[in-house]
């Protein structure tokens, strides 16, 4: 059965480069550009991996007064603490964080919520591909 990944990033350009190489390995990819879309996706699909940016537009479904600069950390907390109703994706789904954030305190907070990988931007392409395939338990593409 093919694996399925959800990318959450408000800038498709920063992740779309991975799509072709991953699709070539029979991985299905969905993209959510804000918090609302992400929650809708997580409710309707069961994902094997979520690749999460830290800064994006949260949307009202994530709750009130969520700061965009830490929306990724908030979404991560919602998933891990099982706070989203009718979630099709399990709360312990592997999550990979891709971020350009330099704020160490925020990164610490994210790590405390148990993430399976954290890559700081700019990221060497191959490293992300390797991490994604490792987390999905498949052989990396050459």
């Amino acid at each position: 059965m093919s694996k399925r990944i959800l990318f959450v990033d408000d800038e498709p350009l920063s992740v779309s480069a991975y799509f072709e190489i991953l699709e070539d390995q029979n991985i299905e990819i969905d993209l959510a550009e804000d918090g609302n879309q992400a929650i809708n996706r997580l409710q309707s699909q069961k994902y094997d991996l979520v690749v999460l940016d830290v800064q994006f537009t949260p949307g009202e479904m994530m709750g009130e007064n969520i700061e965009p600069r830490r929306a990724g950390a908030e979404l991560l907390a919602l998933i891990r603490k099982n706070k989203i109703v009718d979630l099709s994706t399990p709360p312990n789904v592997p999550i990979l964080i891709l971020t350009a954030v330099m704020d160490q305190r925020l990164l610490e907070e994210i790590k405390d919520l148990k993430v399976d990988g954290l890559c700081s931007k700019p990221i060497v392409f191959q490293k992300v591909v390797e991490t994604v395939t490792r987390l999905l338990g498949i052989e990396p593409a050459s």
Binding site: L13, S14, P122, F125, V128
Partner: peptide, 15 residues
């Protein structure tokens, strides 16, 4: 931010 996108896209391009 755009620099990061360029770097990522380059990976895709070389693939």
């Amino acid at each position: 931010s755009p620099l990061h996108n360029i770097i990522t896209q380059l990976g895709g391009l070389s693939y």
